[in-house]
């Protein structure tokens, strides 16, 4: 029997607060089969309710982590804005010195700034999901806090850094004239969400395996560090030969290069490839959500 909410019954009032609340009492059955047959809709419903319930805590988590990062520094908030820009600055310098090749499609500064921003944004859910489950396992194993509340609390910093970088990109675009000119650039926003969910799906699946063998996160860390050089972040990948063919199978490349072109130029260089990647990413996300929903009680208990 794997019933989360098998029946809901109204509850006797105990005061103003209880009366105002939707008085419903849950009947929960915990068994070895708890959630084992849970499907996608059950997962979506449970997790969205948890995120709504814990919204205050997610926000507080973000603020806490954000404040604690800079609370003991002399320059305080300066670092919050400076550090996200460091990778962009470093690779821009290399591009300016002609150490890495650039593209004629757009300003190399915009190219690199967007590449770094998108790559960090897309890979963050993969790494942070595993990290959240590991570092906050004590909290997860002792309370019923929503697992996504813990994961999303860690994305606060990522969201802030992305906004700071996008701010810089806005300045660079205005300065170099690489700003969006076509209405189709607006597709950038929903595709950004799709990329995030696809990446989160990968992160959720890997987090399950990482709970059994922590080697997973080490391998992922290596892949992401090296992957940056194979995903058109700083320079375009060759179109010909074996490496050209392999890039089609690198979803990070597809998302980074596609989203960048879409924002700046207003079109996707390979829209079919993007459609397949985005579609596959969403399917993966939904599968991952269902699997994670089933595995979650056991993952939490392993803490």
């Amino acid at each position: 029997m794997a019933t989360d909410v098998a029946q809901e019954v109204p509850r006797k009032g105990e005061g103003k607060a209880a009366k105002r609340r939707q008085n419903k009492v849950q009947r929960v059955v915990y068994s070895p089969a708890y959630r084992a047959k849970g499907g996608l809709f059950q997962a979506l419903r449970t997790y969205s309710a948890e995120i709504w319930r814990d919204r205050w805590q997610i926000w507080m988590n973000f603020l806490r982590k954000f404040k604690s990062s800079y609370s003991t520094t002399f320059f305080g908030m300066f670092w919050a804005f400076a550090l996200p820009l460091v990778p962009i600055g470093a690779y821009t310098l290399l591009a300016t010195m002609r150490v890495v090749s650039t593209t004629d499609d757009m300003s190399h500064l915009v190219y690199i700034a967007l590449g770094v921003t998108l790559y960090a944004y897309i890979t963050a859910p993969i790494e942070q999901t595993m990290a959240a489950l590991k570092s906050d396992m004590a909290l997860l194993s002792k309370t019923h806090i929503g697992v996504f509340s813990v994961i999303l609390g860690r994305f606060g910093n990522i969201a802030f850094e992305t906004l700071v970088r996008l701010g810089l990109i806005g300045v660079l675009m205005a300065f170099f004239g690489s700003y969006p000119t076509h209405w189709q650039s607006l597709y950038f926003i929903p595709l950004l969400a799709v990329a995030f969910m696809a990446s989160l799906g990968v992160g959720l699946i890997l987090a399950i395996f990482n709970a059994v063998a922590s080697d997973v996160e080490k391998v992922v860390s290596v892949v992401i560090r090296f992957g940056v050089f194979f995903s058109a972040v700083f320079f375009p990948m060759p179109q010909d030969g074996l490496s050209g063919q392999l890039t089609d199978f690198n979803p990070l490349h597809t998302f980074v290069d596609g989203l960048r072109h879409l924002l700046v130029k207003g079109y996707l260089p390979e829209w079919e490839l993007m459609a397949w990647t985005a579609g596959g990413g969403m399917v993966l996300f939904f599968i991952a959500l269902s699997l994670f929903y089933r595995a979650e009680p056991h993952l939490r208990a392993s803490g």
Binding site: R27, Y30, H144, P297, H298, R300
Partner: peptide
């Protein structure tokens, strides 16, 4: 286990309410 923080390996726990 009764609080649902550890799933049982056998058997069943039923909680009616919060």
């Amino acid at each position: 286990v009764l609080h649902g923080l550890l799933p049982p390996d056998l058997g069943e726990i039923e909680v009616n309410g919060e």
